[in-house]
Design a protein around this nucleic acid. Structure first.
Lengths: 206, 206
DNA sequence: CTAGCATTCAAACACTTGTTTGATGCGCAT
DNA sequence: ATGCGCATCAAACAAGTGTTTGAATGCTAG
């Protein structure tokens, strides 16, 4: 089996990502997915087993990428000696924002992530937190060292706020429309800068 | 037609709120709604016309309540002379958190709100932002007066972050589990205090 | 060339979906 | 008592759901 540049599996994943982000997991049918992917209906169950499993693989593909990028960014920051809070936050935020502007469906995935947060479905939440949790813990450990006066409990609250704000911000850049003259790349950098300034101040709150 | 304390309409609304929050608008069927409401299936279309319209009435009922409470809280704060940033934030946050702890389905609604934010469905977003937008603007105006050195654009970014953090915090109190000895009321107050401290510091960031 | 295997396909499966229908019950004013 | 209108009910509707099936491919190794 040679994985062609746009294999059936890939086309299904991309179409599913787009449609699930737009209409929700229950709202988009497999027939819609396979038809926009130009693929036979039965291909989903052949390649993924079930709709449920398709959703899981969808998350795995992106989350693996996101978490490794975050860990790499954190390692780089730590390697350069004692970091600032801003640098640590940047290692957490930038990979997410760059994923959010990725042309190849990343934008859809970010909305999907926001949806997963809003879901009450425990199965999906568990899955996300499994691939997500240890990264958050690593960042928490690092930040705790940089904020020796901050009780651990307070830090966890604030990291929770930051995660929520980031998810929401990414899922659609809110009220703030991109100025016409600005490139997407520049807009993203600007958003990251704004966010980091806000979050760092929040972390330092007495 | 005398509106009994638990009329058919009310029972449908409550059941729908609960189930839609749990499974999404497409994920929960009218049969599930009517069966948990102990009501005939046809009652939904009789009283609300369609599933779509049921969802709208659901949002209207709660959002009207939330926005008026926020505006009242803001007025009260302003009436007592020049306010602090913390007081303004409290007027914004407390009504939401008290709604989130309301026994009569309010908790479900808050999750529903988070879901609406995650939705890409433009119809629903417009509906929410119509009942939501002018309140946010009023708070923005007030805060702008309290932060004379802050560029308007920066404030909008930060309010966006705050809205996101609040929405996701409310929708499920995140990693932070309620300590066993604490009452729900006390836990909410604690959450509100944590949130306001974080958000106020973020707003004041230089 | 051919046997074998992974993939694709149209068709059907049983089931659930939102909505509509027409009959039935109930309460209240005439 | 009678008639009227609102509310509820079981039943059915057409359409759409995820999944399965078995035949038809196409490709590759022997």
């Amino acid at each position: 089996m040679i994985n062609q540049p746009f294999s059936t599996k890939d086309r299904i994943l991309s179409a599913a990502e787009y449609l699930f982000a737009k209409a929700g997991f229950a709202g988009a049918s497999l027939r819609q997915v396979t038809s926009t992917a130009n693929v036979n209906l039965a291909a989903v169950n052949y390649h993924f087993g079930s709709k449920e499993n398709l959703i899981n693989e969808l998350f795995k593909r992106r989350l693996d990428e996101l978490t490794t990028q975050r860990m790499q960014a954190l390692e780089q920051v730590l390697a350069a000696g004692p970091p600032t809070i801003e640098a640590v936050l940047d290692a957490f935020v930038s990979p997410a924002l760059s994923l959010a502007q990725d042309r190849h469906g990343g934008q859809s995935f970010v909305r999907l992530l926001a949806r997963a947060f809003a879901e009450q479905d425990q199965r999906l939440r568990r899955f996300v937190s499994d691939n997500y949790g240890h990264v958050l813990k690593e960042f928490a450990r690092t930040l705790l060292g940089l904020l020796p006066a901050l009780p651990k409990e307070d830090l966890y609250w604030r990291l929770d706020f930051i995660s929520g704000a980031l998810t929401y911000t990414m899922s659609d850049f809110g009220m703030i429309k991109k100025p016409a003259g600005l490139s997407e790349e520049a807009h993203r950098r600007h958003a990251a800068a704004q966010f980091i300034r806000f979050a760092a101040a929040g972390l330092r709150a007495r």
